[in-house]
Computed example of a mutant assay.
Amino acid sequence: MDMKKRISLELRNRTPAEVAELVVDNCRTSDGEVEGLTDDFKELEFLSMVNVGLTSLAKLPSLPKLRKLELSDNNIAGHLEMLSEKCPNLTYLNLSGNKIKELSNVEALQNLKNLKSLDLFNCEITTLEEYRESIFELLPQVTYLDGFDQEDNEAPNSEADDDDDDDDEEGEGRAGPKGDYDEEDEDEDEDEEVSEGGEVGLSYLMKERIQDEEDDDDYAEEEEDEQKAGVQGEKRKRGAEDEGEDDDDDDDDD
């Protein structure tokens, strides 16, 4: 995808003046120049053009509020004077993976008075003897070079800090990850209780059914016994009556 089309998509129905951050990494320029970016992006503070085939910054528009510029993995060899002219308030500049070989290639950055962090990692210039000392001497306003200061202290990850702050602020207005986790556990517990309750209910019903069947069997046996007892009683009664009739006959005969 070419840079113009990518920028148009990244606008997402916004006007250029409403955009504060713009990322067009891995798209392509037709002639190694910046395309589709205009002076209308006057509110832009962060711009990332990583691996887009840039060889020159001659067509970079005026971006007075731009503070962070990502230009890593391009083919820029020098001519960086456009940066101080078009982006005078830059504080962070990443030129790693470009074609910068000599100190003279970055000398133009002296005019970026607010520049605090510069990255030249994977550029040929880093192989020069006393490279770090020379850069810090050439650009005294720079605090961090390739992520470390002159005493080899690592630069703070300001973006990570910002994310942490955002998380804290969001946490004040809504349940955090821990709350979500507890809620999920509670849902799982409820599911387990329902499941267990279903099993208990089923077992109970089965037991009730078996008990009912046993009660029916007992009742049937009792009824059968009663019927047998009744029949036997009837037989005994009839036998007694028969015996009584025989006695009467004997008396008559006498």
Rank of each mutant, 00 (worst) to 15 (best):
Q110R: 15
L120G: 00
L139S: 03
D163F: 11
D168K: 08
Q110I: 03
Y144V: 06
E154D: 02
Y144N: 04
V142Y: 14
G176E: 14
T143S: 07
R132K: 15
A108M: 10
D162E: 09
D165I: 13
E124D: 08
E151G: 01
E107S: 03
K116R: 15
S195M: 03
I125L: 04
V106F: 01
T126S: 01
F148D: 01
K113F: 05
K116L: 08
E188A: 05
N114A: 07
L109Y: 08
E159C: 02
G197A: 10
N114L: 10
D152V: 06
L118V: 12
K113D: 02
L109T: 09
G179Y: 10
P140W: 13
K113G: 00
A175P: 10
G197E: 05
L109I: 10
E151A: 12
G147E: 05
Y181C: 03
S195T: 04
Q141K: 09
S195V: 00
A108G: 03
A160E: 10
L120Y: 06
E107I: 03
C123F: 05
D152S: 11
E169H: 12
D165F: 11
P156N: 00
P140F: 11
F148P: 01
E184D: 09
A155K: 15
D119Q: 02
L112E: 07
E190C: 03
C123I: 02
E154C: 03
L145H: 14
S134G: 02
D187L: 02
Y131L: 04
G179A: 09
S117N: 10
D119P: 00
G197D: 09
D146A: 01
E184Q: 12
E196C: 01
E172Y: 15
C123L: 02
Y181A: 02
K113Q: 06
E129D: 11
A155I: 13
D165C: 03
Y144I: 09
D161C: 11
S158W: 15
V106H: 05
L115H: 10
D191M: 09
L128A: 03
N105D: 15
V142H: 13
L138P: 00
A155G: 00
E169A: 12
S117P: 13
N111D: 03
A175I: 12
I135M: 04
A175Y: 04
E130R: 15
D119K: 05
Y144E: 08
F136Q: 00
G176R: 13
E170R: 14
D180T: 08
D164H: 09
L115Y: 11
N105S: 13
D185C: 08
L115S: 07
A108E: 12
D180G: 01
E107G: 00
A155E: 15
E151S: 12
L145S: 12
D163N: 06
D180C: 00
L112H: 05
Y181D: 04
D149E: 11
D165R: 14
Y181M: 09
T126E: 06
L115E: 10
E169G: 02
T143R: 14
E154W: 08
Q141M: 13
D185M: 10
E170W: 15
E172W: 15
N122C: 00
I135Y: 08
D191F: 06
I135F: 03
T143Y: 12
E137V: 02
D162Q: 12
E107Y: 11
G147Q: 03
E184L: 06
D185W: 11
G171D: 15
V194K: 07
S158E: 15
E172G: 01
E192K: 09
E137L: 06
E188N: 08
K178I: 09
E199T: 11
D164K: 12
